[in-house]
Design a protein around this nucleic acid. Sequence first.
DNA 1: TTGTAGGCGTTATCAA
DNA 2: TTGATAACGCCTACAA
Lengths: 337, 337
Amino acid sequence: MKHVTIKDVASKLNCSVSTVSRAFNDKYDIRPETRSLILKTAEEMGYRPNPIARKLIKQRSLNIGIVVPEFVNSFFPEVIIGAQDVLHEKGYQVLIMQSNESKDIEYKNVETLVDNMVDGILISLTSEVTDNEYYAKLINRGMPLVFFNRVLEGLNVSRVLFDDYKWAFFATEHLIVQGHRNIVHITGPEELLLTKERIKGFDDAHKKYKIAPGKKVTCGFTMKDGEGMAQKMIDNDELPKAIFSASDLSAIGFMKTLKNNGIRIPEDTAIVGFSESRLAENVYPPLTSVKQPTYEMGRTAAELLIEQIQNTGKFVPQTIVLNGKLNIRESSVNVGA
Amino acid sequence: MKHVTIKDVASKLNCSVSTVSRAFNDKYDIRPETRSLILKTAEEMGYRPNPIARKLIKQRSLNIGIVVPEFVNSFFPEVIIGAQDVLHEKGYQVLIMQSNESKDIEYKNVETLVDNMVDGILISLTSEVTDNEYYAKLINRGMPLVFFNRVLEGLNVSRVLFDDYKWAFFATEHLIVQGHRNIVHITGPEELLLTKERIKGFDDAHKKYKIAPGKKVTCGFTMKDGEGMAQKMIDNDELPKAIFSASDLSAIGFMKTLKNNGIRIPEDTAIVGFSESRLAENVYPPLTSVKQPTYEMGRTAAELLIEQIQNTGKFVPQTIVLNGKLNIRESSVNVGA
DNA sequence: TTGTAGGCGTTATCAA
DNA sequence: TTGATAACGCCTACAA
């Protein structure tokens, strides 16, 4: 497509390109009448300064990139909306990229954003990313970066995360208080820090009540993953009395298979999910789940990033831990006892 | 952040920038050894051609923009994944923007993409966009464009949409066949073409069975919208025997209020949704809904766009209508009769 | 096979 | 207050 350029405007008005440029850059060394004439003419001609050329010379874009591992769950979209609200307000445009849980795509996404000279990046990692090297390099090159939700350790970078340990602890404790002694934790991908934190919370809750540690099984975050896990347990005849799942979707998939097999929830098996989605309160039976402050996570990450961009050099990375809430519903309430 | 440039590489190797450039552009007028030496050195130095500069000179970016009105529903994310699969394969990077159902943000998003010199745009409109003017201009300027799902009429542009008329007809017919004669259609925002099509389908199904036309009430696409609508009907004592809702979310919100008021589904009021979300089969009772081919919609739109980009000028815009499926579940099956 | 130079659309520096 | 000109990083005739 064709762009009207600064030259077109200049030649139409018989003035130099620098004058036109000045009119658009709010410098004061230009006569007001000239300025308004230029602006008017440019408007008529449909001229808009080309930000590509501008980027090239200014080395900044007023664009921010957001990279998420997936957005089939409502979790990331909600975070993005929070971030977007802050960034738009500050005059930034937001470019979103999703990595489909693939490390290769994630790296490509980041490169694309770097190539497009975004001023900063908000990122949540795919589960395939386990080592620091790539991002250490990026940070070293001076790209303002904030990790959220799925983060790495050992990097000098800001992070916004959820207190996975604490809420896994509470979720487990809730099941224990309901009288359960045979709880299985369906974890997320083992590489994720949040998985490790949730496992720790799960174990410590057992310790507090002096119960033998519950079993852990690794599982993905999708509904299909949950369905498969349930089927496996049923087939092996090792379905526990209670399940604490690291994701709502896998919990709901799990429930689905149980229901199809005539197993009652919570009477036969109680279930607690994590990372509340809109699904939780609408499935049957309604699912007990840990609610995370998604919108706030996006806002916080965005604010941190902007602060960093505005204070390059003297900015000290921080880690902000957000709080949550356990929504108790029928899927875990011991109606029998 | 600092970029290694072509000059750095050239001076390191004591050659000219054009030689380096050539090495990266796979032209054959370069000695293989020179080429591989340059590539190797560049790699070591961390040089990557700056696509901003490249865009400026080539006037193309290998980037495609996708603009969606929202992505809280899983509908648009699924479409995006379909489009992304095609585009990645063709070597394009995908920039996603969401408009939050606001016309202003939508236009800004489009401008940002144009400014970033994307090679084409896939777009689904916010409900606030009702006139052609803005997009007519964009098309006129030569930006390759494909509308999907939420489209405009009267523009010379490719469109991928769903046969809303047909499936609204079938959904309604299903309720009629179940014996219902008092069906209310909860529509989407009136401005949307798809809303009009669904209303037409709803009415024509009534005609076919020679039943007096059912009532229509306008409503948003969110769960809250559905909840409010149900409450209003209950308060006014005008709850019908059957509901055909233009969105799963509003249908589910509707169900929620009904359940809270002790109204049985489908015995007291039967419900059919539209645009199947993952929720449909997991809520209680499971919701009858029209399933749309989201992933395929994304693929098709992307393919159309690429075709258009590759044949600028001689490309003839097409409208592709995709098929769907009615998933019949408990929420609408007449158990009483 | 390689180098030189002009240009993509801007902004910034210096003269005028 | 305005204009010429050199960047920004790259590509591509054209010349060597």
